[in-house]
Amino acid sequence: MLKRILSGCAALVVLSSCTTADMMTRYDDMALDVEHSANGTVLIRAFGNGYTPEQAVVDYAMLKAAEVTLAAGQQCFEVVAQGSQMNDVSMAGQFGPMHFDKPSARLRIRILEGATECDSGNADAIVAELRTKVADVSHYLED
C-alpha cells in the first residue's frame, strides 16, 4: 500500500513539473485550416488546446495569413473579417466529465495582387514580427 502511495506521489511531482508553456499548442504543431473562396478571399481558422491563450491563436492565424500571402507571390493583404472566442469543450473523464476552454480564431483576408504599398497587411513585416513572437511562447503566459 505504501508503495502505491509513493508511486502516486512521484507521478504527481512529475506532472506538476510540467509548465503550461510546455503543454500549449505551438504554431508549428498546429493544424490551421486555410480555405480559398470563390470570391477571392481566404479564410484561416486556428484552434488551440486548453492550455493555449486566446492571443496566441489570434497571432497564429495572422501569421498564417501573411505566409499565405507570400506563398501567392504577393506582399499585401487586407483583413476582411476577424474574430476569436473561447469554446467550452466537455469530454468524459475517468472521474466524470472534464471541461476545457479551447480558443479559436477566424480570419478572412483578401490578398491584394500587385500592391506595393501596404496600409496594414504587410506580409513581410508580419512574418518578421510574429515568427519571433510565436517561437517563444513564455510571453503569452505573462498576462
Rank of each mutant, 00 (worst) to 15 (best):
K3Y: 09
L6I: 09
S7A: 13
G8Y: 09
G8D: 09
A10R: 12
A10H: 11
L12V: 08
L15P: 03
S17N: 10
T19D: 05
T20M: 04
A21Q: 11
D22V: 02
D28C: 00
D29L: 00
M30W: 04
D33K: 12
E35S: 13
E35A: 14
H36M: 11
S37N: 15
A38M: 12
G40K: 04
G40T: 05
L43F: 09
A46E: 07
F47R: 11
N49P: 12
Y51F: 15
A56V: 08
V57M: 06
Y60T: 08
A61G: 06
L63Q: 05
K64P: 02
V68N: 01
V68K: 00
T69V: 07
A71C: 13
F77P: 02
V79R: 09
V79I: 14
G83M: 00
G83A: 04
F95Q: 07
G96V: 03
D101H: 14
R108T: 14
R108D: 10
I109H: 00
G114V: 06
G114R: 07
A115V: 10
T116V: 14
C118T: 14
C118V: 13
S120C: 08
S120R: 15
D124P: 13
A125C: 09
I126N: 03
E129A: 11
K133M: 08
D136S: 07
D136E: 08
S138Q: 11
S138D: 12
E142P: 04
E142F: 00
